[in-house]
Simulated assay, not measured.
Amino acid sequence: MSAQLTLFAETAPAPKKRARRTHPSVPAVPATTIPTALLRAADWILLNSSGGKDSQSMASHVCRLAAKLGLLHRVVIVHADLGDVEWGGTRTLAEEQARRLGVRFEVVKAEGGDLLARTVARFFKLKAKAEEEARDEGRDPATAKVAPAWPSSTARWCTSDLKRGPIRKLMTRLVAELGDLGRPVRILNCMGQRAAESAPRAKLAAVEIDRPASNGKRHVTTWRPIHGWTDAEVWKEIARSGLPYHEAYDWGMSRLSCSFCVLGCEADVVLAARLRPRKAAQYVAVEKKVGADFKNGLSVRTIIERAKALDAEYGELRRPPRGTALSGYVGKKATRTYLDRLERGRLDLAA
């Protein structure tokens, strides 16, 4: 971690962005929104997996549909490896889910450091820009106000840098694998985003053309197969599929991916601090480096204080029984059945 921060202590000016033009062959709207038609039309069915409950239920749901159509050979599960900022075992879990589903698994990872290192790098870029603007305006550079370096709901550069960019490189490889088809390769990019997660996600379309990811060689359609699902439906799909889910949910986390997510609720990040105190300390170090709180109005220092207060009042956390999160939605009997199937490694896509 310290080596990454040192690496980004001095950074070159950010390159100028070029205006992007969409290839004229890229359609403006999807040709269909019917699930079976979307699957049949796709040359590749790409399932984005964070290892979390939504992406795994999306994956098992789509794989069941693809299996009925005889299209599992077109399915690829991709996991964007975020490094140590994500929960331990996440990459291994995503790979195991793909193995049990019987589909191809790919891992992508951004070059140039993890989220913490990139936050520091972003700070120095923003600082240099603010100081340059101050000098141009005849002001003291030392008083220049630096924009927040941490990602936020309005600046989700973590998603574009650590997930979207590397996954688009995989799309380029998948297109090359098929060779010249005499037409653009059709990629159905499946996401586990749900309307119930947040107001912004509720506004997302279930099916849409991803124009920035499309070009003259590939046409990318984004499909959110479980966009309208509730939490209960997600957990019922997990119970039905028999796929293993991450133990962080049994501990009480409501979401996965980054263990300390800037978009996560306070309860989640406090719980993460109780479970990962060393990682929390690294976030504090970055807060000091960039001179800004991890979340607007909520520092990791405060999060750690609240975590320590809970430990002092209730004692350190004890490992919960496997299946704790699932049983709250499907009951103890169905959970026992699920755990038995999980132990024996059974998976029936036609179930």
Rank of each mutant, 00 (worst) to 15 (best):
A134Y: 04
G242Q: 02
S25Q: 13
R274M: 10
R322N: 06
G328F: 02
L126I: 05
Y314F: 08
L256S: 14
R341Y: 12
P184V: 00
V78S: 05
G138C: 04
A350V: 11
R139L: 09
G323I: 13
D231S: 11
E313T: 11
R183E: 06
A292F: 00
G165V: 13
H246I: 10
V120A: 14
V220G: 08
L178S: 10
G112Y: 07
V26N: 08
P320I: 10
C158I: 03
G70T: 09
R255K: 09
G165A: 15
A3G: 07
A334S: 10
P320E: 06
H23Q: 07
H227Y: 08
E177C: 08
L317D: 00
K145W: 02
R344D: 11
S327Q: 15
W157V: 02
P212E: 13
T92G: 12
A285S: 13
R346T: 15
L71I: 09
I77W: 00
M191L: 11
L317T: 03
L71Q: 04
P30D: 06
L101V: 02
K127I: 01
L5T: 13
V330G: 03
G70I: 14
E95A: 14
M58G: 05
P184K: 00
R18I: 15
G192Y: 06
T302F: 05
A144L: 06
G345M: 02
D250P: 07
A350E: 14
G315I: 02
K217M: 00
I209S: 03
T221A: 02
I34H: 12
S214R: 02
D231N: 09
E305A: 15
L71C: 03
V269C: 09
S160G: 05
G323F: 12
A147D: 12
K53W: 00
P200T: 11
T92Y: 12
G328W: 06
E137D: 13
D114Y: 08
V175D: 00
G297F: 12
R255E: 06
A66I: 12
R319T: 15
V284S: 08
S49Y: 04
R240P: 07
E96S: 09
V234A: 11
D161E: 06
A312F: 00
V76S: 02
G51D: 10
A80F: 03
E131A: 10
E10P: 09
G323V: 14
R156V: 09
A267C: 04
A155N: 13
L349N: 03
K163I: 08
V330M: 05
Y314V: 02
I238A: 12
R278N: 13
N215Y: 04
H73W: 08
A155R: 14
E316F: 06
R224T: 15
I238F: 05
L271T: 11
G83S: 05
L174Y: 01
D180V: 00
E96W: 05
L46F: 01
R64T: 11
D268V: 01
S60G: 04
G323A: 09
K53C: 02
A9M: 04
G70Q: 01
A14N: 13
G297S: 11
K129R: 09
L243A: 12
A350T: 15
L181Q: 10
T90N: 04
T36Y: 07
W87V: 11
L271Y: 11
L326I: 14
H61C: 12
A176Q: 12
A195Q: 08
G102Q: 06
K279A: 15
D43F: 00
